[in-house]
Nucleic acid binder design. Structure first.
Lengths: 353, 353
DNA sequence: CTGTTAGCGCCTTCAT
DNA sequence: ATGAAGGCGCTAACAG
């Protein structure tokens, strides 16, 4: 039983007007409608069960009120939280979200980009663990493209105002975490990085490494000893997927390395680490402290409660929406982030307060 | 700088053909195209950067290859996992997902339903913590509507084949969890239910209550003592939001009640309970066992590892896709669910193995 | 095999 | 204040 939806002409027939008037009533313009006529149209709309067809409107006007959101893993609470905030923010502004999960796969990203373009999304919010994103993607996008985890402003000739970079400052965030551990007395701080060869992994590693460098009195064995060494070549650096399992598997290695502090690049990793340490009977933070980048509202409920760098996702979503709707100001967005100290890292030492 | 997208007529002009031929090439039919012509068209497509406009196609054909997904809380890992599986399954079939979060708010649900309808989604997957869903929503939907957490098949005259109920069997699931605790020697098993007055909360409570009833030798004080008592009137029943905090706050009450086992209706609740118990220094499961409905791949990484009823979301998404595409068979879908015993509940007693 | 044509549902300019 | 008409980009008959 295929239901035929009522169209404007159905409404017009019932109301005894033209389709134009119906359109005026539905959209509140651009021409005025007599009070009496409007009432007849409204009645007809109710009677027929008319509902505007967004597709037809978009085809005609060239605007879709539709946003594309691409993330690398919807199973990551940080990212699903991000999507949730974006949905909330944009829905209230009349926009709907196409959500896609790239599974951190460049080929899939391409497919998704094609899809988003052919669906005429008005804007695109893009979270890829790698940079830069598909080049032609942006070239062909009409509307603004927001790069959620840009390491630096993503420019491009002729695209001013259409590319918006969100500088999550992964580097400074990780550096901040590292400093917090140092201030709490950790002397041998390891870093659990993301998958190999990813720019974002590298950025986070760099933040950790540079924070260590700038502090004197730290265990020299962190550095391989030669100038020009990369963070990844440090003996205290370990690479793992951004998953619980990645953290779990890496945990033992940090123990073997004699670390008394770990900076995880991800809440999921940190959760895996905590689970493993608890299983091993290690005392956190007495034996070893753990902090993570991008913690979520789940962090207070781990055992022990996870300390970490928290991003104000609501505020970020709001800024993104503003940037998308007022395309004039396309300066990079820097989200609010703050360190939440919880049980998983030692108390601040007196001399540092 | 507004970019004008190439259309079929642009391609046709460059290729020296008509737009019809371009359409044939793009869609591989319905009429054959000479090899030589096809090549010219393909070249022209590349040259012009043509990309089909899904909106125009949908307007004409009346099919959108677009699916609407509505959940009550994207921050709930079980639900975001569900969305992830659906996205994966439908994307590979050429469908895109509009994702919306109702925040468990009926008014918002209505708005979302309107939006989905006006966007002409080909189908709708609907997860509401309450039943039944907005009536007119289904009436006006062209395509199939999948009710993710139906307590019983949702029928309706004239809608055969368009309503698909996924019977999560929340009741039997909760009953199964309760039985597992009984088999492990728990004698005083409490239930942490969802928000008051919700059908799903009631179903879960019923599963717990009936499982207790059927077992003899249990603490009689579970029941208020009179026939006709509801599960919710039991002293061992507590109601709380489906959140970490809900579990955390309820935890103490279960201790006061002298429970040695808890069936949480949700992983988030269970996580909150575990966190609180750990903080209180209770031994799990020695002092008290905890199990949860709808655990995710996060459960192995709590401390202690959380036991619970796991749903095969991949398989479920697959079944849903099948049901949506082959509308003939609209019998209810019953997802695969299985109990995963982990550290958070005691070992099976010998006599029960 | 290829071209012509008629809409899909809607908005808006231009007449009335 | 209202109506008629054109066209957004595309597909599917129907001609050729």
């Amino acid at each position: 039983m295929l239901i035929k939806h009522a169209t404007q002409s159905d409404v017009a027939r019932v109301a005894g007007t033209s389709t134009a008037v119906v359109s005026y009533v539905v959209n509140g313009g651009p021409r005025p409608v007599a009070k009496e006529t409007r009432k007849r149209v409204l009645d007809a709309i109710r009677k027929t069960g008319y509902r505007p067809n967004t597709l037809a409107r978009a085809l005609l006007t060239g605007k879709t009120s539709t946003l594309g959101v691409v993330v690398s893993d919807l199973g990551n609470p940080f990212l699903s939280g991000m999507v949730q905030c974006l949905e909330d923010e944009f829905f209230t502004r009349g926009y709907s979200l196409f959500v896609a999960d790239s599974h951190d796969d460049p080929w899939r990203e391409k497919q998704i980009a094609e899809m988003m373009l052919s669906r005429q999304v008005a804007g695109l919010v893009w979270y890829s663990v790698d940079q830069p994103p598909p080049a032609d993607l942006v070239r062909d996008m009409r509307g603004p493209v927001v790069f959620l985890n840009a390491c630096e402003p993503i420019g491009g000739a002729g695209h001013e105002g259409r590319r918006i970079s969100v500088l999550e400052n992964e580097r400074t965030g990780t550096a901040g975490l590292t400093e917090e551990l140092i201030r709490r007395g950790c002397r041998r701080i390891g870093h659990l990085g993301g998958p190999q060869g990813r720019i974002n992994s590298a950025e986070r590693a760099r933040g950790w490494y540079e924070a260590l460098r700038e502090k004197s009195g730290l265990d020299e064995s962190v550095f391989a000893g030669r100038e020009g060494d990369t963070p990844e070549s440090s003996p205290l650096y370990i690479s793992a997927p951004y998953t619980h399992e990645g953290g779990w598997n890496a945990a033992d290695k940090f123990v073997d390395l004699g670390c008394d502090g770990i900076v995880a690049s991800n809440e999921m990793q940190a959760v895996g680490i905590l689970a493993r340490f608890n299983r091993l009977g290690l005392r956190i933070p007495a034996d070893i402290s753990v902090v993570a980048l991008h913690t979520t509202n789940y962090a207070p409920y781990t055992t022990p409660a996870l300390s970490g760098m928290h991003v104000d996702l609501d505020g970020l979503a709001h800024s993104i929406a503003d940037a998308v709707f007022e395309q004039k100001d396309c300066s990079p967005i820097i989200p609010n982030a703050y360190f939440s100290a919880r049980e998983s890292c030692a108390e601040l030492r007196d001399e540092c307060r």
